[in-house]
Amino acid sequence: MPAAGTLGREAFGEVKGVYGAILPKTVTPKPRAGNPPPRLAEAPAGIINSIGLQNPGIERFLEDLDDYDIGLPIIVSVAGDTVAEFAELCARLAGESRVAAVELNLSCPNTERGGTTFCARAETISEVVAACRTALPDKPLFAKLANEGALNNALASEEAGADALTLINTISALAVDPHTRRIFLKGGLSGPAIKPVALRAVYEVSRVVSVPVIGCGGVTSGTDAVAFMLAGASAVQVGSGGFVREPGEILEEFAVYLRDNELKAQNLTSALRSRDESQEAMLY
C-alpha cells in the first residue's frame, strides 16, 4: 500500500492492480494550506520534505471520498493538534462505511505539550490511542510511529488498543545551502537513506508486540519489501520510492523473488533464518 501523503488521486492509474489498499494524505479537522515553498530538498539517497500537511480538512475530504474508491479498501490517515482532535476525527470516521481502517499520524506536533510530537512520550501515545480506540470501536486502528521511541511507543499503542503499527515516519532533517549560507529546508527525511533505520525499528518492535507491523521507509524495490517482511513486517508501504519507480515494477520484483525462492508472502514474516543457519548456507 502507499505511505500516507505520497500517492495522490491523480496517480491512481499507476497503482491499480498493484496496491492492496489506498491510503490518502493525512487529514486534519480543518483545512491546511501547507507550508510556503520550498517544500522539497534532495538528499543523498532520499528527499527532505516539509509539506505542512496540506489537506482540505475532514469535511471536504469526506465529500470527495468517492474519488478515492478504486475498488480497494480505503485507510484514512488522520492527525490532530490535541488528543481530543484525534478522537473527534476517529468518531467522525467511525460511522463512515466507505472507510476500512484509520491510521493515526502520531509524528505531528502536540500543541498541548509545547509542540513536541505525540511520539515524544509513551504516556501521550497511550492517551491518544486509547481515546481513538473508544471513538472507533468497530474499525481497525493503526498507530503510525516515528523512529524515536519506537519500542516504548509500540508497546503503549498495543496496550491502548491499536490493531496494527506502522513504522516509521520521516526522520527530522535539515538542508543547509552553503552558497547562500542559509537554512534551505527543515523537514523530514525519507527514501533509501532511512531504510536501515526503518528495518531496525520493524525488527525490534515486531519481536515484542503481537499485533501486525506495517513496514515503511525507503522501499524502492521488491527485495526491499522482502527485507521488511523478513524483519517482521506483515505488510509494506511505499512512499518516496513511488516518485522514482513504478509501484508495479516493485510488486513484480517482489513476485519474482517469491517465485524463485518458492515462498509465499504470508510466510516471509517468519522466514528469517538465524544468523548461523544463513552463514552456513553461504559456506556451501
Binding site: 501523503g5 505520497t6 500517492l7 495522490g8 488521486r9 491523480e10 496517480a11 499507476e14 494524505k25 501547507g34 507550508n35 510556503p36 515553498p37 520550498p38 517544500r39 522539497l40 530538498a41 528527499i47 520534505n49 509539506i51 496540506q54 518516496s240 513511488g242 516518485f243
Partner: peptide
C-alpha cells in the same frame, strides 16, 4: 518549483 513525483502526489511543487 522543485518537484519529486510530478504527478500530483507529493504536494512538493507548491505555487
Amino acid at each position: 518549483e522543485r518537484m519529486a513525483c510530478a504527478n500530483g502526489s507529493c504536494h512538493g511543487c507548491a505555487v
